[in-house]
């Protein structure tokens, strides 16, 4: 039996009718056609599907659609808008060459943003820990970690 679910995604209200066993990732990618959130494993092991649920990073493939009824979700599409400035994490990813194939990138950006939101000056160990659930097979993480450090710096400058 399909259920009616209301959710807020990137500040907009949506209503979807869905089978209750579909996941938030299914709803985002298939119903709302927000394909920036990636499906890498569908079982909570790669982090490619990371979104912010009420401000906290989660694997959207592990969350059933009915659980997000009335909740607020931010996907990569909500982090920046065309013609507006990028988020400092995004800028830093570009500058530091923290991207190769890009498939892990949306999830990485979300996890990094969530980290810097709760801990503006993370140590290298804290950065690595915050990204431990996001697999990247291309970069060896070196430039990703550098980018998160650089983003923290940028945000610090932005605050002062």
């Amino acid at each position: 039996m399909k259920q009616r679910i209301k959710l807020f995604v990137n500040g907009e209200a949506y209503e979807v009718y869905t089978e209750p066993n579909r996941t938030l990732l299914d709803v985002l990618r298939e119903d709302l056609e927000l394909t920036g959130t990636k499906r890498g494993c569908d079982s909570g092991e790669c982090g490619a599907c990371t979104v912010l649920l009420n401000g906290k990073p989660v694997n959207s493939c592990l969350i059933l659609a009915p659980e997000v009824d009335g909740q607020s979700v931010v996907t990569i599409e909500g982090i920046s808008k065309p013609n507006l400035p990028l988020h400092p994490v995004q800028e830093a990813f570009i500058e530091k060459w923290a991207i190769q194939c890009g498939f892990c990138t949306p999830g990485m950006v979300i996890s990094a943003k969530a980290l810097l939101d709760r801990n503006p000056e993370p140590s290298e160990e804290e950065i690595k820990l915050a990204l431990a659930g996001n697999l990247c097979r291309c970069t060896g993480y070196v430039k990703i970690v550098e980018a998160v450090k650089a983003a923290a710096e940028k945000m610090k400058e932005g605050r002062s």
Binding site: I76, F93, E95, W97, I99, G102
Partner: peptide, 23 residues
């Protein structure tokens, strides 16, 4: 010269299209 990647903007904003994104 280490130019930035020409595809970086699309990738970092989640707008890059991959196979499974195609309908």
């Amino acid at each position: 010269k280490s130019l930035t990647r020409v595809d970086a903007l699309e990738k970092v904003t989640g707008r890059a299209v991959y196979g499974d994104d195609i309908k």
